[in-house]
Amino acid sequence: MQQRDESGGTEAQAKDVCLRLLTDRARSRHELEANLAKKGFTAEIANAVLDRLEKAKLVDDESFAQQWVQSRHKYSGKGKRALSMELRNKGVSNELALHALDTIDADDERQRAAELVRKRFRTLQMPDSSGPDARAERDKVVRRLVGMLARRGYSQGMAFAVVKEQLDSAGADTEGFDGPDSM
């Protein structure tokens, strides 16, 4: 029952490609479909192989989304917004993505953002709070930290609140600092 197409390969070859890809990390069905198409396998062969792999529980978008969210949040410090976009790019349905993102609550996200800010803050030079350009220098540090969080998918409001907390704990002058509108 090895179907062969003149432009692609057999089901066994497509299965081998998928299994090799799955040894590196879990993948979404969409990712595997794209890889098979890139290698010249027909949609018919790709669908047959992926359907069998789903039945064997080797391809499971729900499990993939859960693993992806937990791993990328914990190890890469990604916020919900960035994770949502990554899952969308990986072809995970909106429903499965929302379910996976619900495993990260607001406290977890805020705590991870605070860890990232503390780590980055240590490498930044905080100006002397009594110097003439202290406010401008503080604002520059704030922009860098907030920008770092924004690139990782954290909301602007959370980013400013976490940065303000870090500045307060470092003894920096935060008078007149109320978030994005104060800059």
Rank of each mutant, 00 (worst) to 15 (best):
M1Q: 07
Q3M: 06
Q3G: 03
Q3E: 00
Q3W: 07
D5S: 11
A12K: 03
A12R: 12
A14N: 02
K15F: 05
C18I: 00
L19E: 07
R20L: 09
L22Q: 07
L22H: 02
D24N: 06
R25L: 08
R25A: 14
R25I: 07
A26E: 15
R27H: 11
R27V: 02
E31P: 10
E31I: 05
A34Y: 07
A34K: 15
A37R: 08
F41L: 02
A46S: 11
A48D: 12
V49K: 05
L50H: 01
R52N: 05
K55T: 10
A56Y: 02
V59M: 00
S63Y: 10
S71R: 10
S71L: 14
K74P: 04
S76Q: 15
K78D: 15
G79P: 00
S84F: 00
M85R: 15
N89T: 08
K90S: 15
K90D: 14
V92Y: 01
V92Q: 08
S93K: 10
E95M: 11
A97L: 10
A97K: 07
A97M: 11
L98P: 06
A100W: 08
T103W: 01
D107V: 12
E109R: 02
R110C: 04
R110P: 02
A113W: 03
E115V: 09
L116N: 11
V117N: 12
V117Y: 07
R120E: 13
D128W: 04
S130R: 09
G131S: 15
G131I: 13
G131Y: 08
G131C: 13
P132S: 13
A134H: 09
K140G: 05
V141N: 14
V142F: 12
R143K: 14
R144F: 04
L145A: 04
L145V: 08
G147C: 01
M148L: 10
L149P: 09
R151E: 15
R151N: 15
G153R: 01
Y154V: 05
A159G: 08
F160Y: 11
A161I: 06
A161H: 08
A161S: 06
E165G: 10
A170Y: 02
G171E: 04
A172D: 12
A172N: 04
D173M: 13
E175I: 09
G176M: 13
F177S: 09
F177T: 12
D178I: 03
D181H: 10
